[in-house]
Design a protein around this nucleic acid. Structure first.
Lengths: 216, 216
DNA sequence: CCTTTAAGTGAGTGATTACTCACTTAAAGT
DNA sequence: ACTTTAAGTGAGTAATCACTCACTTAAAGG
């Protein structure tokens, strides 16, 4: 049941398929409402009303309410998890192994920051609903273990060999890096979005923190 | 509307008040179900059935379903947020300012680790429901800003003055420390509880990571 | 021993839920 | 021009929801 890149790309393409105007309105209304009140507390009648559409129309396009949720979350999960594999950035950054670990970290954090900035209701829904839907957790696990973790591991091994990184088990190092990156993005957009942020500086500081934390 | 220590202690005492056996069963069933399926997808009839109690009994003790949730979450939030202020640990650790920053970090992470280990369904409910209930967010904000953040800030200032910490705005330093601590606990108990963890070692590594990340 | 009070019950309530279906409208295919 | 197919509708449905209330049981107080 592992998903290869082609399948993931297909998921993304399906999401881009042409929709009727009403379908687009439904999706927009669903995203807004799911993000604000959560999937379980959102009724299909409420979505229909907000979208300016009859309730039956929702079920013309999505067999169930859950299918509507999946059609929203699945593509986001793929786009969020594969930072940018399947794009030119991927090969550039992960295959070619830039000498500068710092530069790499900065590219990653910047890239994920931009993504969340432009999609934060979607990311919010993903995080909220992962807590309740085991199928979403499993979906995430598969994509992560298949496409993200191994590349990270490869990366760590490389820099470790070059003595640029402290002696540390790879899973621990990866956890600390990801924790710091996601911790910034999460604090920035979910916990305290109303604070005054100097985003550039804060990303630099976060990268510095990881660098000092891991290097000899 | 800020809450002082006495009020918080009162909240904790209310939670310890004597309950009838059936009330205890209700709470246990509610915690189990809320943790697993979330507040919104849990019906009062389900809680009653699992508790072996008539549905009316729930409403004898709690005016509304929401009140039942709050009676669970509020004490957890206080216990989780004030690491251990109001206990001897608090003054010992935060007032007396141990020379060893590393030792302090270790005490904090260990302490919070133990707490979550023994209460992780409760912590899970708290995190899940904070996303949907603004009143819970506000409750958290107040306790955190009043009782946790200032002490942390004081601490950072102290170690900065002693030149044991890199030049960095306090909010950023605090964010990085908390992100790393919570990141470990979150990964350990929520994201990947089934992995094989060497908890002691992993806590040491996390403290080391923060130390290196922040010191000169 | 009598009265008061609290704990517990379960049938009942109106509102809301996700989803269906017979139907209309209109675009697309041939 | 005729047929097929897809998009959209909204009244309808059985199930479930949080919550109420008249009632029973039993412990506690004087």
């Amino acid at each position: 049941m592992t998903k290869d890149l082609n399948e993931l790309i297909q998921i993304l393409e399906e999401g881009e398929q042409k929709k009727t105007p009403k379908q687009t309105q439904i999706l927009k209304a669903a995203v807004e409402t799911f993000a604000e009140k959560g999937y379980a507390s959102t009724s299909t009648s409420e979505i229909a009303a907000k979208a300016g559409v009859a309730e039956g129309t929702i079920f013309r396009h999505y067999k169930t309410k859950k299918e509507l949720l999946l059609s929203i979350v699945t593509p986001v999960m793929v786009k969020f998890t594969l930072p940018v594999f399947a794009s030119h950035f991927a090969e550039q950054v992960f295959e070619q192994l830039p000498q500068d670990f710092e530069e790499l970290l900065y590219k990653i954090i910047k890239n994920r920051y931009e993504f969340v900035k432009e999609n934060h209701p979607l990311v919010r829904i993903m995080l909220q609903e992962m807590a309740f839907h085991k199928d979403l957790q499993e979906q995430f696990r598969l994509v992560f273990l298949e496409h993200v973790y191994p590349r990270f591991e490869h990366l760590i091994a490389h820099y470790k060999q070059e003595d640029r990184i402290i002696e540390l088990p790879a899973p621990s190092a990866i956890r600390m890096i990801m924790t710091s990156l996601i911790g910034f993005i999460f604090t920035r957009f979910i916990i305290a979005p109303d604070l005054e942020w100097d985003d550039e500086k804060e990303m630099e500081r976060t990268v510095q923190f990881i660098m000092h934390g891991l290097s000899k």
